[in-house]
Design a protein around this nucleic acid. Structure first.
Lengths: 208, 208
DNA sequence: TCTCCAAGCGGACAGTTGTCCGTTTGAGTG
DNA sequence: CACTCAAACGGACAACTGTCCGCTTGGAGA
């Protein structure tokens, strides 16, 4: 499960001054991001606006991606909880549930595009591994894999490499491609959902 | 077609001093990258090693991604040429040809991982669009789309949204996911190829 | 050959990231 | 309350990106 704290929430035994710094950083970031968007705001500015030194800022959030992750925490928790509830029931085909996951993920991309973009940008160079090696993606991956395993068990689909198939199913929803399709290519959500549905449920060779 | 120059080769009417600078920059970059890897080398260092000022360096290559693109030029040209030749013949199913494209792309990732990673890293923030809006990806995309259209025409597969399907087929081969699967998850190429083949040729529901 | 100027040059610079380190402080313990 | 020290603080700092701008130069035309 994707627990609280997964992507950078408050830790537990925080000293009072530390908690206050954290809150001031988050408030300042929220305000600046709301005013000017996420991308053009630097960590330097956040620190200045929050009235904390560089050391304090980076001690709490070691890069902009971590800060954005913390801001995304609530939204991500809601998302994973809603998905959990829907998947819990024993009703309906597992592939249908996988489609639900993917559609909800598209919605999550839509709602949180700027923060997700910033998180992605921050995970470059020596932080490349964090792009996939993070609790949120791990949860997506495990959930998709589980659904595919159930689908195989129930003979909805023949056996296949569920681990690879999970990554492959999620890959078209990576934030960069998603934004490219939406903003540059002008695809609408309905079209993308329909096309994705076709590919997931029928594959290329499906009955159309 | 992916022409020369697509990703940043020499331009045509270059002044002699400019050509010399460009060559020195490329030589210095190649040497530094070979010695220490791509990621930890900064543009600043490349400029210093090449003996050119910042202005000259950035006039030629406006960011590290562009420099890496230029270094990749030859390899990318070879790749697209080889694919072109294979696809030219009128023989065999279009889906087989799509698989060929994807497998060769996996090989391209493998051979050029560090440069591709650096290019990706450089395309963040206000340069997000360049991640997909570049001649190389456009060529991949158009090629995949064309093969899917042929497959539909020839009744290899039922009609579908070829544009979306092209992006979706290429998405699992994005360099970040590819490296994660290879390096973090320890998947081997054979497994990935087999799993991809299954998904492309049969879809999830295929005859297994 | 001389003139001219667009193209090219380099280095200073502002703004940023992320680290380091000496100083301060909050919260347990006696 | 006084003591202690790990935790937290802030600001200086080195390194880097990308821009700007005044100076230089290759090469085209007279």
């Amino acid at each position: 499960m994707l627990d609280a704290e997964a992507w950078g929430a408050e830790c537990c035994g925080e000293r009072r001054d530390a908690a206050e710094s954290r809150q001031r950083i988050l408030d300042a970031a929220r305000a600046l991001f709301a005013e000017r968007g996420v991308e053009p705001v630097s960590m330097y500015e956040v620190g200045r606006a929050a009235g904390v030194g560089q050391g304090t800022l980076y001690r709490r959030y070691e890069h902009k991606g971590a800060l954005c992750g913390a801001l995304l925490h609530e939204s991500a928790g809601r998302f994973s909880e809603e998905v959990r509830v829907r998947l819990e029931g024993d009703d309906g085909p597992a592939l249908e549930k996988l489609m639900y996951l993917l559609q909800r993920l598209a919605g999550f991309n839509e709602e949180n595009a700027p923060l997700l973009g910033a998180i992605r940008d921050a995970a470059g160079g020596e932080r490349r591994r964090e792009r996939y090696h993070n609790p949120f993606y791990q949860w997506l991956r495990e959930t998709a894999k589980m659904l595919l395993e159930i689908a195989v068990e129930r003979r909805e689909i023949p056996p296949l490499d569920t681990e690879y198939a999970a990554d492959a199913s999620l890959a078209p929803l990576n934030i960069d491609l998603y934004l490219y399709q939406r903003q540059e290519l002008g695809m609408d959500r309905g079209r993308m959902t329909a096309a994705m549905r076709r590919l997931v449920l029928e594959g290329l060779k499906g009955s159309g």
